[in-house]
Amino acid sequence: MVRERMRRLVQAASLVFSNLYLQGWISGTIFTGKSKMFCVPGLHCYSCPSSVLACPVGSVQNILSSEGFLGGIVTGRPDSIILLGVIGFLLTFGFLAGRIACGWVCPFGFLQELLYRIPSPKLTIPSSWRDAKYAVLLIFVILFPLLLRTVPGAGGDPWFCKVICPSGTLFAGWPLVLSDGGETLQTGFLFSWKTVVLVLVLLWSITSKRPFCRALCPLGAIWGIAGKVSVFRMRVDSSCISCDRCRTVCPVDIAIYKEPNSAECVRCGKCITVCPVSAIHHDVQRPENN
């Protein structure tokens, strides 16, 4: 349980550390300091009033959708190189320990875990739904921002942020719209649509374990793929008795003894704590038994 307490502490500390501009909630403004050149390892909107760091998914989309980005790759435009920096930032976490940031840092993952504690009928998510997040990554984070242009030659839109991201609606959209009182921020169909998405995700989080992380999150998709070759990984000994206790406590509902380095694993370590025969370990070098 020490590990779980430590994880909660890290999750809470990350939330505080990335939201130091608290006066933004009162004034209805956002932080404009230089720390926003750097990304938070998690899904946290940079338009959140208190956020002092940038969202990596938003940053990738904004660079891809910028005017002249495609042509700039050939000429070594600075935007292309900074895109390399953001992708390098994401891959560093992924190649180090897969989706560890999902389990220990991401504020939206933390929120979903808290919501799941609300008593309600609990539902499982079909494993095939996990693949949807790869489509979200490819279509809404990469292809649409890169290729869709309303006006030829002009910049595009960050489509994931625009039509899906519930974190942006919750932590940035509603707070800013409420504090503005409709004076300058005019809401319309898009805002209503995003609110519907947010409500559905929040309700789903009460009945299922971290549904957004498992089915829709593009960050989870990137880290899940990179986690397949991460330095730190999970290992299950042959002493495993397949009691399934690990699956019961797992925040992403995986049976780690069947799939020790699942792309879904958020490396929270809950399974290590509950294993009655101590068969599950963090590991660096030794290959695990399947």
């Binding site: 050149m37 909107c45 940053s59 920096g85 930032f89 898009l190």
Partner: peptide
């Protein structure tokens, strides 16, 4: 990326309210 690129690109977007992000 951060040394040779232009991190100001990220800052410029992050320091203004992203209308798309908030719907």
């Amino acid at each position: 990326g951060y040394i040779w690129g232009n991190p100001i690109v990220i800052w410029q977007k992050a320091a203004t309210i992203c209308l798309e992000c908030i719907g």
